[in-house]
């Protein structure tokens, strides 16, 4: 049962990624990748990592992909929309992938009550996770926190406001 779901989700993930790679419009590519990451989060859950599945949705889908969309829209990287309305053929792949992900998640919740209560094959609870993360891997957490700080400082440095040369001349 769970293995069949896993293969369906793997197919959804690979199909969505293939559509993302081949799509010409960056906005469509990012949305397809979001759909693939939802399938990947369900696969993580089936492999016994519910916390990672939640963070996949929160961090990847909620933060990183939205950041990509934000940059695409700010820089206007997407080509202009064609004047004619979207034909129904363009809806088919997205709708099928979304239907597969929704079907699999509903099946996990309703057909497999042990999985819904948080007990798949090898379940890693938050307590064991946190103890291992802040016990044995405490130094790694410190190093990663430094890295995040450096990345924030670097991004701030790159994005700081600099008036252009002609703007300076105009104001002076």
């Amino acid at each position: 049962m769970a293995s069949i779901l896993f293969y369906i989700l793997a197919f959804v993930l690979l199909a969505a990624t293939l559509l993302c790679v081949t799509c010409r419009n960056p906005v469509h590519a990012v949305i397809y990748l979001v759909k693939g990451f939802f399938a990947l989060a369900l696969m993580f859950y089936l492999l016994g990592a519910p916390l990672i599945a939640a963070w996949e949705v929160i961090v990847y889908v909620g933060a990183i992909m939205v950041l990509f969309l934000f940059i695409i829209m700010v820089l206007e990287l997407a080509p202009r929309e064609q004047p004619q309305g979207p034909g129904w053929k363009r809806w088919v792949p997205g709708l099928m992938l979304a239907a597969a992900v929704i079907f699999c998640s509903l099946l996990i919740i309703f057909q497999d009550p042990s999985a819904a209560s948080g007990n798949p094959a090898h379940f890693v609870g938050p307590r064991a996770f946190g103890e291992a993360l802040f016990g044995r891997f405490g130094l790694a957490v410190e190093v990663v926190s430094f890295q995040l700080l450096f990345a924030a400082v670097g991004a701030y440095y790159l994005g700081r406001y600099q008036p252009r040369e002609q703007d300076k001349e105009e104001t002076s």
């Binding site: 990592a49 990672i52 961090v59 950041l67 891997f137 995040l148 990345a151």
Partner: peptide, 21 residues
Amino acid sequence: QLFVVLLMAVTASEVAVALAM
């Protein structure tokens, strides 16, 4: 799974700097 958490932090910092660039 712990390493995936560290990988997510690496990815977040990489994306922040790369998109700023």
